[in-house]
């Protein structure tokens, strides 16, 4: 196996695990959101790596070029980035609301609070 040739996939896996750990370690809400972002970014890189064809030109019509990279992953990832930004925005907004309600955004310390909360 060509270890170095797949370096971008190694980066993907490293980022994915880093992000995933940050999410499930369950600490500060902002850190969780950062973790989610890293996690999502790793997937973006995965897609974009797949679209690259070595030796091919960027997918813009040009005379004398007959090998183009695949443009579709870029388009997909553009959508996914938008989704990621929206998720981050909603997540941060919720974190603000949680802080207003509890005075803390330390997720692991709020476990008990959620259960048995009376409906007001």
């Amino acid at each position: 196996m060509d270890w170095l040739g797949h370096f971008n996939y190694w980066v993907v896996i490293f980022l994915m695990m880093t992000g995933f750990y940050a999410v499930i370690a369950r600490g500060n809400m902002v850190k969780i959101i950062i973790g989610l972002n890293i996690f999502q970014t790793s997937v973006f890189i995965l897609f974009i790596s797949a679209g690259k064809i070595i030796g091919a030109s960027s997918p813009v019509l040009e005379k004398g070029v007959d090998l183009y990279s695949n443009p579709l992953p870029h388009v997909l990832i553009l959508t996914a980035i938008v989704v990621g930004v929206a998720t981050t925005a909603v997540g941060l907004a919720l974190a603000v609301r949680v802080r207003e309600n509890y005075g803390s955004i330390q997720d692991d310390q709020l476990t008990e609070e959620e259960d048995g909360e009376p409906h007001t």
Binding site: L36, Q40, V43, G91, A95, V98, E113
Partner: peptide, 24 residues
């Protein structure tokens, strides 16, 4: 209820993880 944003946040984290897994 006071916990609504907290529940929503947790739902968001799990939901986004799920969607990203799907995307992978």
């Amino acid at each position: 209820s006071r916990a609504a944003p907290l529940s929503a946040f947790r739902y968001l984290v799990m939901g986004t993880l799920g969607a990203t897994f799907y995307l992978i």
